[in-house]
Design a protein around this nucleic acid. Structure first.
Length: 156
DNA sequence: GCCAACGTTGGC
DNA sequence: GCCAACGTTGGC
């Protein structure tokens, strides 16, 4: 069992959208490193922190679980999608992007802000607290994951 | 809106 | 293969 952090802008898709949907396909990841984590390392049952980026304030809003392992992200081949991989498709190359399906486990009673993550000495070294870190899917150490759950006042 | 970080693209 | 230009991410 592995632990992850996954970013999404709440103005695009936030935790309340996931609460409404129950399960969602994590589409639109267009970065090789993030894709490789999904494709190679993410397994059924893994838990992930739902991180709100570009938010006021940015922070962790809850917990998700992987309910389907990596499969093709067909938004890359959909010209109507904002995630359409136009140049790649025009070149006749096969779809290179994948997504996983996630279900909501719990929305935190209290969102844990980036500021709070940085202020917690037990979270030293957490990737998302590093200045300028743009990776949208990140592995998280178990002890860090559990600590963040505690800060979010969940019973997990 | 600004800007730092950093990934991608394309000329050579 | 180098590297400058450009585009995107994301905090502030």
């Amino acid at each position: 069992m592995k632990y992850w952090l996954m970013k999404s802008e709440p103005s695009v898709y936030g935790i309340d959208d996931l609460a409404r949907d129950g399960v969602t396909g994590w589409e639109g990841v267009r970065n090789y490193q993030a894709r490789n984590f999904m494709r190679d390392d993410m397994q059924l049952g893994d838990l992930a922190l739902f991180y709100h980026s570009n938010a006021n304030p940015p922070g962790v809003a809850g917990i998700m679980r992987v309910v389907r392992e990596a499969y093709p992200d067909d938004t890359a081949e959909d010209e109507k999608s904002p995630y359409f991989d136009a140049k790649w498709v025009a070149a006749g190359k096969p779809n290179r992007w994948v997504r996983v399906d996630l279900e909501l486990v719990e929305k935190f009673a209290q969102e844990v802000s980036l500021q709070a993550l940085r202020a917690d000495t037990k979270l030293a070294g957490l990737m998302v607290t590093r200045k300028g870190c743009r990776l949208s899917i990140q592995p998280v150490e178990k002890r860090h994951f559990l600590r963040i759950c505690k800060l979010g006042q969940t019973c997990l």
